[in-house]
């Protein structure tokens, strides 16, 4: 029973992080229908930028955090501006291939700079953050992850609900030509959604880095694990991303705990194939009906 509870808590915390990572991905897909294969690399970039600022530049943690988010924002903006804007209106294949190329480029670049080693952040979380209720023990990093994640989830929820830019973004996601004809600056919305998605990715990168350590291969593989999550949740549903993340996280930890640790990494993809066969638009996705 203890083992079960521990797995449950681990699964939920990891799943929550998957959901957070998937959120940025969904945001890009919703506004510009681009499948971003470079998401994991942006995430890793956030983690490494934070590492560089916190250890090499010796900035205070809070400042390093803010600067990292600003850096991720700029990165997202620049990616959209340089690489994706020329492809607006081009076939989908080109756009997807471009993100595959970007992923390979960023990953190679980061490996050239930092190598394949495992780094860790300096300790900065207060000890009292951990939860210890007898059988249920949650390490401080998970608590911090959930707090940071929920905080930003709330922030983004408010942003989409009340700010004018957030409303523009939702309108573009909903119906691009209509938004365009009502005067929404669609290109700015694209740029902004890439920038915000990069910020979200950066946050998830930092949090994942705190938990698992920072390694280019590990972090960029999260970007691929996002696919089972978003397919399960529905490609264009942000709340679906969180729920999908929780389900995939639980599935992974329980498989790792009860069946076999080596099966753990593969189980999300097996699930993915079955979802595609059974319920291809996911739990909360918009069902596209197309008939000839």
């Amino acid at each position: 029973m203890d083992f079960f509870l521990q797995l449950l808590i681990n699964g939920l915390s990891i799943g929550f992080l998957y959901g957070l990572s998937a959120m940025g991905f969904v945001m890009i897909f919703k506004s510009s229908s681009v499948l971003n294969f470079a998401h994991g690399e942006i995430l890793a970039f956030g983690a490494f930028l934070f590492l560089a600022l916190a250890t090499w530049a010796q900035l205070p943690i809070a400042l390093a955090f803010v600067v990292t988010l600003a850096g991720a924002f700029v990165l997202g903006f620049v990616i959209e501006r340089i690489f994706l804007r020329p492809l607006i209106g081009e076939p989908l294949i080109q756009v997807i291939m471009l993100t595959v190329g970007l992923a390979s480029m960023f990953k190679g670049g980061m490996l050239l700079v930092w190598g394949g080693n495992l780094y860790t952040y300096p300790e900065f979380l207060p000890e009292g953050l951990g939860v210890n209720w007898g059988v249920i023990q949650v390490p401080p990093v998970y608590v911090a992850a959930v707090i940071i994640g929920s905080l930003f989830l709330l922030l983004f929820g408010l942003f989409f609900k009340f700010s004018s830019q957030g409303i523009y973004m939702r309108s573009v996601a909903d119906n691009q030509p209509a938004a365009l004809s009502l005067g929404v600056h669609v290109r700015r919305v694209f740029a902004l959604s890439w920038a915000i998605a990069a910020v979200v990715a950066g946050i998830s990168g930092i949090v994942l880095g705190i938990i698992n350590g920072i390694n280019v291969h590990e972090l960029s593989s999260i970007g691929l694990k996002v696919f089972p999550v978003v397919i399960l949740g529905g490609l264009d549903s942000i709340s679906g991303a969180i729920i999908g993340g929780l389900i995939i996280g639980l599935l992974e930890t329980f498989t790792g705990g009860y069946l076999s640790p080596s099966l753990r990494d593969i189980v999300p993809y097996i699930t993915l194939v079955f979802i595609l066969l059974i319920k291809p638009y996911g739990l909360f996705g918009l069902v596209e009906i197309e008939r000839v």
Partner: peptide, 10 residues
Amino acid sequence: REFVFGLAIV
């Protein structure tokens, strides 16, 4: 190699 391949694709 990874970097150059990605760059070439892009």
